[in-house]
Every structure is written in C-alpha cells, then in structure tokens.
Design a protein around this nucleic acid. Structure first.
Lengths: 210, 210
DNA sequence: CACTTTCGAAACGGCACCGTTGCGTATCGG
DNA sequence: CCGATACGCAACGGTGCCGTTTCGAAAGTG
C-alpha cells in the first residue's frame, strides 16, 4: 500500500479504546470536503492528469498540507474518491425480464445525463490505460455492481424460460450496456424517453428475419 | 475561422499560377512531421489538455515558431491532425449480411487493438464535451464512415429480406458497434478471435426464446 | 496547565510550458 | 545578387503547479 498507515478508516476521533495517539484528531469534515471537491472537479470535465492538488485544496477550503498528510500522491486520492461513490441501483420488480431490463437501462440513461456520472465515465474510458490500479477500484465499486444487476436479470430470464437457454450472459450484458453507452455518447439527437425500451426490444427480438 | 488565411491547403509550393507570395515556401515536410508527432503523442495516451506545443515541436524536430506560424492554437492543430487520419475500411464481399457484419466488426476489433486507434477512441470519449468543434471533425472523418459502412450492410439486409423489415437501422448500428466497444474496453479476458462472430450472431438471433 | 497533533494560510525554490522575439541560415522569385 | 519569407534554435518574462516548510491558532489528552 502506498498510503501506509494513512487513510486508516475513519481517521477521526478514533473511539476505539486502543492507542489514541494524542493530539488534535484529524478533521473528518475536511476529509469529506477534499473527496467531494475531487469528485466535483472530475465531474466538471477534469481528467486525472489535469487535476491539481492546489485546485482541490482551494475548492475544498483546505490547506494543501491537509491533503498531503493523508494521501501521498494524487492517484491514491482519486482512488479513494472513486471508492466513495455510492451505487444507488434501482430495484427491479421481478415481474418480467423485459420490464426489469428496461428499468436498469433507463436508470443507466438517467445517470449518463447527470454531469457527475457522465464525466466519471469519461475517466473510465480514457484514463483506464494510464491508471490501472485506479481503474480496478472504479470497476469494483461502480461498474461491477451494475453489471451484476443486469447479469442477475438475464440469468433469471434463462431460468424462467423467457430467454433462450443458450444465451451468452456476458455477451447479452455487453450488448445491452454497450448499446446504451453508444447512444449516450454518439447518438446525436436520437435519445428519446423510450430509448431503454427500444434497446431492450431490439436485443430481445434480434435483427434476423424469422 | 481562427486560422484565417493559415492552413490554406497544401501550404507548400503553391503551383497555382496565381499570387505566389515570394520568399521561401513553407516546408510541407515540416507540416507532415508536426501532424505526425501530434498523432503520435495522442496515441501514447496524451489527452488534448496535456498536449504541449513544446513536446510536439521537439518530437517533430521542429521549432515552435514553425507550429505557431501555421496554427494559432492547439485545438486547430489537433483538429487538422485528426482530419488527416485515413479510414481504410475493409471491403465487404456482399455475399451475406452476417458475413459482412462480421468483417466490419472484426476490423473494428483489430483497430481497437492498435495503440493509435485505441487512444484516439479515448479522446473521442473524454474530450468530446470540452472540444465540440474538434469532435465534429473527428466524427466526420473517422466515426461517420464506419457508421455508414455498417448502415449500408444493414439496409441491404433489410432489402434482401435477410433482416426484419421493421429493424431500426440506427439502433442496429449502435448495438453492433456499442457491443464491440464495450468488449474492447471492459471485456476483461473474454476477447477472443471469434468475438465479432459471436456479437453478430447474438444480435441477429436475439435473446428472447421463441 | 503542559504536551501533542492538526488546522488553514502563506511563502519557499524548482520545474514545465506558455506565446513571443531575435538570430543566423536556407530557399524561393525577380 | 537582392528582397522576402520560412527554417531551427535559443532565450525571454510570465504563469501555474509542484512538494515542502514555517507560522500562529485550534483541539484534543494527561
């Protein structure tokens, strides 16, 4: 680990009866503010490379010292920031596969509309090669849960017989998500409210004539 | 236009009999070297924001003056560089829709493997919002021809009856390309030689049980 | 109360790049 | 040969960020 004993969880008052190191405890509020500022700047279109510690400190209303005391380098900070992202996935009703997939894809579409998520996706694409460790964390906390949600629905569909028994689950997953990503990025003007529905129907039906 | 009379086509010896401005003509070789260096740096993972004129000049073996004389800002330079990209699309045999789609998607997969194209895609994703004018150019020279190639095949398939008559062409296009992009980015380890074939078959067949 | 640690703020020297300018040379037309 | 323009190169002053240090104040423990 690069952050050795730093970033040791709550970093704050350490109610744990063990070794309370004496001295002023680290401000939990400052920590939150730093991470929040980092995510804000990323959401405003900053790539990881252009992120400056000074800008983050200024935005967070915090001294640079406070940042360097917790994170030894920028990548660690960004990694922890991404890890702080919650993944509020919509619950699926479980009635039909079609309906559930539409729910998930529609949520994906909505998220892609929000600036914050939107630019996080950019990072996932462009900084993936340069910061593999960072990407690992992002995939784990943000991408994987969403993949899993779709995967569950598809698997259930195979079990219930709504989907073909020979469906390649990962392929189906990539097809649904990939199509949505394609539209949010390059589907100029063709993004309508029923987009999720159209994608799911096309994927279910297939292109070939019977 | 920002580049006023600059970047006036060949910029070189101007064989046009008209007003030859007298003096040493601009080096066409230098121009090529600059653009090539720019593309190289981008291909090495540089985002547009991190591209420095000094680095480009150094890489191209050229003085900064020579760059500033031609392009008034970085965005213009990058735009011209992207415009210089050729799009060597594979010819389709025209036998069957399935086979042609596989050909196109396989080419896409191969391209995604090359560093140069790979990082260009990153730019297409992450710098799209920040440099819309630049993106317009990139879409026109690189993305659109590929979209068109797939579009043609799909349209032909509808005409020949190989595909359903009610297929949404743009949607089919997004599904095929989107799935391939998804795999090249996040399909960890599952990228095999028959990927294009599997994508096309899944798209043709659909997920739903009959 | 002393003692320790963190806080925000400011300043440090150093570096990379900015866009411009001047220099001596090269390459064109007349 | 002469005037004009472009060339590569090196230097300019300016800016923004680096990572570190110093400072006085704050916030805890004993």
């Amino acid at each position: 680990m690069t952050t050795q004993e730093m970033t040791n969880g709550t970093a704050g008052q350490a109610t744990a009866g063990a070794g309370r190191p004496a001295g002023r405890p680290r401000s939990e509020k400052a920590e939150k503010a730093i991470i929040e500022a980092t995510l804000d700047l990323i959401a405003e279109g900053m790539g990881v490379a252009e992120l400056s510690i000074e800008a983050i400190a200024s935005r967070a209303g915090v001294g640079k010292t406070t940042i360097y005391r917790r994170w030894s380098n920028k990548e660690d900070l960004v990694a922890d920031s991404l890890a702080a992202l919650k993944a509020p996935l919509p619950p699926v009703k479980g009635v039909s596969v079609r309906e559930d997939l539409i729910t998930l894809l529609a949520a994906m579409q909505t998220e892609a509309g929000h600036e914050r998520t939107r630019c996080l996706m950019n990072i996932a694409m462009s900084d993936a090669d340069r910061y593999p460790r960072l990407m690992g964390r992002f995939v784990k906390t943000a991408v994987e849960p969403r993949k899993q949600a779709v995967r569950d629905v598809v698997r259930r569909g195979i079990d219930t017989g709504e989907l073909r028994p020979d469906v390649d689950v990962e392929m189906a997953l990539g097809m649904l998500s990939g199509t949505m990503i394609w539209y949010t990025k390059w589907g100029n003007g063709e993004i309508t409210d029923d987009l999720a529905e159209r994608i799911v129907d096309q994927a279910l039906t297939g292109l070939a004539a019977d």
